[in-house]
Simulated assay, not measured.
Amino acid sequence: MRAQAEWQGRQGTAAAISSSLMGWQRIRFEVTEDASPEADGSRHAYTPALGAFTAVIGASGDIMVPEDRLRSVMLLARQGRVVLEEELDRLLGRQWDEELESFRYAGEGAPVRWLHAAV
Rank of each mutant, 00 (worst) to 15 (best):
G80H: 08
R81P: 08
R81T: 08
R81S: 14
R81G: 09
R81A: 15
R81I: 09
R81L: 15
R81F: 13
V82H: 02
V82W: 07
V82A: 07
V82Q: 07
V83P: 00
V83H: 06
V83R: 11
V83F: 00
L84S: 07
L84C: 08
L84D: 09
L84E: 10
L84H: 10
L84N: 06
E85Q: 13
E85R: 10
E85I: 07
E85C: 05
E85N: 13
E85F: 00
E85L: 10
E86Q: 13
E86T: 05
E87I: 01
E87F: 03
E87M: 03
L88C: 04
L88S: 04
L88P: 06
L88Y: 09
L88M: 15
L88V: 12
D89G: 08
D89Y: 04
D89I: 01
D89H: 07
D89K: 07
D89F: 03
R90H: 15
R90I: 05
R90L: 12
R90E: 14
R90C: 10
L91W: 02
L91T: 05
L91P: 10
L92D: 07
L92P: 03
L92T: 00
L92I: 04
G93E: 05
G93I: 00
G93A: 05
G93W: 03
G93K: 03
R94S: 06
Q95S: 14
Q95D: 15
Q95R: 12
Q95M: 04
W96K: 01
W96S: 02
W96R: 01
W96A: 00
D97W: 07
D97Q: 07
E98F: 04
E98M: 01
E98T: 04
E99R: 07
E99Y: 02
E99L: 07
E99H: 05
E99F: 04
E99S: 08
L100S: 01
L100K: 00
L100W: 02
E101N: 10
E101G: 03
E101L: 10
E101D: 14
E101A: 15
S102Y: 10
S102H: 14
S102Q: 15
F103A: 14
F103T: 08
F103C: 09
R104Y: 12
R104M: 09
R104L: 11
R104G: 12
R104K: 12
R104H: 11
Y105Q: 12
Y105F: 12
A106D: 13
A106Y: 06
A106F: 08
A106I: 09
A106H: 05
G107T: 10
G107S: 15
G107R: 14
E108W: 11
E108T: 13
E108V: 12
E108M: 13
E108K: 14
G109K: 01
G109A: 06
G109D: 04
G109E: 05
A110I: 06
A110R: 10
A110S: 15
A110C: 11
P111I: 05
P111A: 11
V112R: 09
V112T: 09
V112A: 10
V112P: 02
V112W: 05
V112S: 08
V112D: 04
R113D: 12
R113Q: 14
R113F: 13
R113H: 14
R113G: 11
W114S: 12
W114I: 13
W114A: 12
W114L: 14
W114C: 08
W114R: 15
